[in-house]
């Protein structure tokens, strides 16, 4: 259920503005890769090129290759809708469907796929909510709207919604930045469990979080405001935080950099 991501020479634009330039990296299956770097260096943009969400923004354009195992996501005839069904995404601000119940939120992806049996739906919802460590808190109110939950619960609901369709990869864009420390801890624990089954890529502003949850860390930077962001280095998290090979990384991690 988990696949390798192979990115080579990836450049992304917003209209004529080049947001990220020539990024190449490999993400191993069943691992957690953290993206760190200053604001505006293109972490979100890069993450969104991995499930072809970048192109839904007006002017969004991508050059380069993203291989999922051996299939090029940007190859000819590849349907972006199909790509997004195999690569799940969790956003910075929790965004459950406000007009749907908790149950329907989790089932939403399955219903889109159309490949489910009515009788199985309940089981999948339960399994996904358990997978997101939310089941015990919501099992008595599955028919209540998801927007009635706390922020941390809503974010776990969004994770449940994403994993219900058994994606190959799970992308998370600062999933804890809108949450309190306890909810953050709950999500970090969850990430540790989910990596047994999924390939996970997480953007985070929080160094400790990157150090706690990830196996590999990628540091992005930009030379000046308005310049495209670049990948500075990617390495084992332990190494990045103890002995990075690039000086800029060390400066950033030790807080000697903006």
């Amino acid at each position: 259920m988990a696949k390798r991501i192979d990115v080579s020479g990836l450049t992304a634009y917003y209209g004529s503005h080049k947001a990220i330039d020539d990024i190449s990296m490999t993400v191993e299956p069943r691992s957690v890769t953290a993206f760190i770097g200053p604001s505006g260096c293109g972490k979100s943009t890069f993450l969104r090129t991995l499930n072809r969400m970048h192109e839904v923004t007006t002017g969004g354009r991508v050059e380069g290759k993203v291989l999922l195992d051996d299939e090029d996501l940007y190859g000819q005839g590849v349907d972006p809708v199909a790509v997004r069904r195999t690569i799940g995404m969790v956003f910075q601000r929790p965004n459950p469907f406000p007009t749907m119940s908790i149950f329907d939120n989790v089932a939403a992806g399955l219903k889109l796929n159309g490949s489910y049996k009515k009788s199985e739906l309940g089981d999948v919802v339960e399994k996904s909510l358990k997978g997101a460590n939310l089941w015990n808190e919501v099992k008595d109110r599955l028919n209540k709207p998801g927007s009635g939950l706390s922020g941390g619960q809503q974010q776990r609901l969004c994770i449940a919604r994403a994993i219900a369709v058994e994606p190959q990869v799970l992308l998370m864009d600062e999933p804890c930045s809108a949450l309190d420390p306890i909810s953050t801890l709950a999500i970090e624990d969850l990430i540790g469990e989910l990596k047994e089954r999924f390939t996970i890529v997480i953007v985070t502003h929080n160094m400790q979080q990157a150090a706690r949850v990830s196996d590999r860390t990628a540091f992005f930077n930009l030379s000046a405001v308005g310049q495209p962001g670049r990948l500075i280095e990617i390495d084992d998290t332990e190494r990045i935080f103890s002995n990075p090979s690039v000086q800029a990384t060390e400066d950033y991690i030790s807080g000697r950099f903006g």
Binding site: R84, F91, P98, T99, G109
Partner: peptide, 25 residues
Amino acid sequence: QMIEEAALALGATRWEVIRMSVLPF
């Protein structure tokens, strides 16, 4: 926008985005 993106990221087509988030909203 964030609700429409939620639907898109689940693999909704444009019409499904409208059905899941625009029309109910």
